[in-house]
Write a protein that binds this DNA or RNA. Structure first.
Lengths: 208, 208
DNA sequence: TCCATACCGTAGCGTACGTTACGGTAACGC
DNA sequence: GCGTTACCGTAACGTACGCTACGGTATGGA
């Protein structure tokens, strides 16, 4: 025997480095050499830890999903009502902080990579559908009187809104600041409120 | 003098080729050689028509904006009421057909490229803000009783929803089919309808 | 008809990429 | 302490990239 390494830790560190490079330099800047530099090692070590570049991307993608999933769990657990849980989950999925905006840039990068890579595309579809399922469950809990089809349609709408906000805020944070994202989500959630607003007046939830 | 070329036509053909390559092979597959092959010429001709790769990308991005802008103009002109115009504009911006889904893939590609390229990022922000302005004007026309801030918030929401639908449908058309996109847009437009629905019932516009 | 010239295909430059092979090195069992 | 062995840094491979230089070619005017 000889020196043993902590494989899981190396994978975690390299995935984090992949993340960082992807957020800073974008998809074309994501090279093995850049990842190695960010992780403080060499390309040799990177390819001793991962079989190839795609394996590195796959684990980083899983890390992204795991991170957002954990945050969603926490948001969901801390809410009193189903509607509050839904709101918390959607808000944490948006990108109000700089950290989240970095995450959004990474997400866009993976989305673009998925368009050219079937493996990453499968991963993306799986993760996104799990998120849609989570939202659909919360919608159904908030409005048990709705038909499943209505809950599903609302869930896909909400997810599309949140991911659209993320994507647009990633490249234009001035047009899509955190406040605008919050407003957009609350406005969309208005449709789930048990009591509609008065006729002929702008929805007060839309105003500040 | 000697033989003269149709510069504008060459630029148009090469931009179309860029588009096609970007939609089929994604951002990493977008090389000068691939563009030349798709256009049926050589890389020499490509770089005699455009100064460099970025110039090619910039014109293709303008082409994307011009195409969607023209479609939006047509949709807007063919509508009777402001609300109908808004609905038509949003629906044409979504990606129900395969052609539109190709456009959505190209859009995602440019979005990802903008994250790493300041020039493309500026272009993207400009084009997207013009689209937001268009939607905001239509919202204001549909609901003249709303305050400008409410119109602006609604416009950014609607644009985020549409672009989110586009981005997600680009990689997962099964989860986001045309019908789901139409439902999502109509559901979002419910908030602009002058008469809210009855309390305690699911919005009939959400049902099929 | 024929020259002049604008045009573009060919070939290749330099660079950076993903990946590989190998030798040095550090740690564990004895 | 020492041999063994797992580990990883170094160096370089082949390839494909963006881009350039040059020579052939077709087409306009005289």
């Amino acid at each position: 025997m000889a020196r043993r390494r902590d494989l899981a830790d190396q994978q975690r560190r390299l995935s984090a480095a992949t993340w960082s490079v992807l957020a800073e330099r974008g998809l074309p800047g994501l090279t093995l050499r850049a990842v190695a530099e960010a992780a403080g090692c060499t390309t040799g070590m990177v390819l001793h830890t991962f079989a190839d570049k795609r394996a590195l991307l796959v684990l980083a993608r899983e890390l992204l999903h795991g991170r957002t999933g954990q945050r969603a769990d926490a948001a969901q657990a801390g809410a009193d009502t189903p509607l509050a849980a839904l709101r918390a989950v959607l808000l944490q999925a948006a990108s109000p902080t700089e950290e989240k905006r970095e995450e959004a840039r990474v997400w866009v990068g993976f989305l673009a990579a998925a368009l050219a890579d079937p493996v990453l595309a499968d991963l993306h579809r799986g993760y996104n559908r799990r998120f849609v399922d989570r939202v659909r469950g919360l919608v159904a809990a908030a409005r048990p009187d709705w038909r499943p089809a209505d809950c599903a349609a609302t869930a896909t709408s909400l997810v599309a809104l949140v991911e659209g906000l993320n994507a647009l805020a990633a490249v234009d944070p001035d047009t899509y600041p955190d406040e605008a994202q919050r407003l957009a989500i609350d406005a969309a959630l208005t449709q789930l409120s048990p009591r509609p607003v008065a006729a002929g007046q702008p929805d007060p939830r839309l105003a500040r």
